[in-house]
Amino acid sequence: HEHVKVVGSLNLVQSLLREKLFDRLDLWVHPILLGVGKKVFDGGTVPTNVTLLEPPAAGPKGTVFLRYGLADGTPATGDMSAPGRGV
């Protein structure tokens, strides 16, 4: 199928990430805290290098939509510092 949407099946999401069986990853980040539960990026998850495909979009209640694409190479971390930004 051209479009596969997964809601609630973290086992499938982790398998797709581990095997790099995706072209695009759409992530919706909701500003709620639920406490304990299953983690998307739990211990043993294989690092996957992705790149942001478009600017983040935020909804009026704080939900943020992020669209990533699979990228070559080894994942690296960065920092949030930017010129003119007080930290």
Rank of each mutant, 00 (worst) to 15 (best):
A57C: 07
G35C: 13
L70C: 08
T48K: 08
P47S: 07
G73I: 02
M80S: 06
E19P: 09
P56T: 01
S9Q: 12
A71H: 08
G35L: 11
G35S: 12
V50G: 05
L33Y: 09
G84H: 05
P60L: 09
P60I: 06
L52S: 05
M80C: 01
F65T: 05
L10I: 11
K5L: 15
S81I: 00
G8N: 07
G73V: 03
F22H: 09
D72Y: 00
Y68I: 03
L25P: 12
S9E: 12
S81Y: 03
N11A: 14
P75C: 07
S15I: 01
M80D: 01
A82M: 01
T63M: 10
V36M: 10
I32K: 14
V50A: 03
A57K: 10
P60R: 08
P47V: 05
L27H: 02
V40D: 03
V40P: 06
V87C: 00
V46S: 13
T74F: 00
T77A: 15
K39P: 06
P60F: 05
K39T: 10
V40A: 04
E19H: 10
G8V: 08
K20E: 14
M80E: 02
L12T: 11
L16N: 07
D72H: 06
V40E: 03
H3C: 13
L21K: 15
V29N: 09
T63I: 12
V64L: 10
V50Q: 08
V40S: 01
G59Y: 00
G37D: 08
L52R: 08
F41N: 04
V64H: 08
G37H: 09
L10R: 15
V87N: 04
H30E: 11
A76H: 06
L21A: 15
G86W: 05
G35Q: 14
T45H: 14
K61M: 10
K39N: 03
L17F: 00
F65P: 00
G69I: 03
L66E: 02
A71S: 14
F22E: 14
D79C: 06
H1C: 13
P60Y: 03
H30K: 08
G69W: 06
D23P: 01
A76C: 10
L70W: 07
G37L: 05
R24Y: 11
L53F: 00
R24T: 14
A71D: 14
G8H: 09
H3P: 02
L10K: 15
E2M: 15
G86K: 02
E54F: 01
S9L: 06
D72N: 11
A76I: 06
E2W: 05
G69A: 10
R18P: 04
R24E: 15
R67I: 00
P56C: 01
M80H: 04
H1D: 15
G86Q: 09
E54T: 02
L10T: 14
V87F: 01
V6D: 13
L53I: 07
D42R: 10
E2G: 12
L21T: 13
G73P: 04
T51Q: 02
L70R: 11
H3N: 15
R18C: 08
E2A: 07
G8P: 08
D42H: 11
H30R: 12
V7P: 11
W28Q: 08
K61S: 11
K5S: 15
V46W: 10
A71N: 09
V29A: 10
